[in-house]
Write a protein that binds this DNA or RNA. Sequence first.
DNA 1: GTCTATAATTTGATAGAC
DNA 2: GTCTATCAAATTATAGAC
Lengths: 181, 181
Amino acid sequence: MSNLTKIQDIAEHKIRIGGFNSFSFREIADEVGIKSSSVHYHFPTKLDLGLAVAKRYTDRFIDELKGHEDASLSLQLCIEMYIRVFETALKRDRKMCLCGLLAAESSNLPNALKSEARRFFQLNIEWLTNKFVELGHLDENSAKAKAIFYISSLEGALLTSQVNDDTTIFDATAKQLKALL
Amino acid sequence: MSNLTKIQDIAEHKIRIGGFNSFSFREIADEVGIKSSSVHYHFPTKLDLGLAVAKRYTDRFIDELKGHEDASLSLQLCIEMYIRVFETALKRDRKMCLCGLLAAESSNLPNALKSEARRFFQLNIEWLTNKFVELGHLDENSAKAKAIFYISSLEGALLTSQVNDDTTIFDATAKQLKALL
DNA sequence: GTCTATAATTTGATAGAC
DNA sequence: GTCTATCAAATTATAGAC
């Protein structure tokens, strides 16, 4: 794996654990096995690194969503798949959603980074809204309200599970959301 | 107002905006109008300050909940009151829930601070569970699952509203939760 | 692309005077 | 309780050699 990729992987891990202010170029450099100046070669500023990581995270997330899409999927299966993508983030990685954490601290983030975190939410809301309109036959407004409700609940469930070191807390929320369809 | 109180107020503000790693003793001292060594007089370490602020936040939150309690309140009114406490945090303060933010970054926090954030969630879940049992006549397990669902959704709604600079996003979630009773 | 070296600033924290 | 003075360490970032 290239050092560029390693840098982004480690930065993503650290942001998802503690936020944008919780890591330094030196820590990343040490874990890669290079010097901090070499990290600056790839990403001139910390903001550049944060933006690249957030963009990559959102793009991958949306790609995974679209990758599991299937014209024959029912609303029920679509939403179950959607919930599973969040579930994986929690149970495999034992970490927060990167953009969820950035959203929480967004008032204190550079504008560009806040915008990138917002993009994650907007794309998710767009995707969910579409499903609720096309498969659930809701009107646009109701569909969007429901979409916001779903992503908010899932992000909150990650946060509550995290602080309680208890992934079954996520399951409790997931179950309620599925029952709501 | 005493400097001790001012220090805690400013620290609370900064944590709610950007998390535990987003402020320094010097910044707080500057805003109070004293020197950073004087802040250390009141709170020897940053952890001491964080713990005091988190404890105060949770105690006040629970006090407010109990203050609005009334034996004659229906489940509907109880939960509407509960949601209103979160709503106030967002619309009056335009900030995250302090313990919500600490929960998000809890994997990177000193254990004592993570525990204090966890206490907020446990007390909230306890309070909600009780209401669902006593006023909603749910069994203990269903009540607790519903309690977890409610606090998770509300915390997530704060986070989603924050990153979108749009308080109506919170309203969308609040409305769905009320409809669910 | 990675290194050494270094700059300028900030950080959490302490000692001791008043 | 607040101050001055100070510390050691860490931070983001740059210049220039290889």
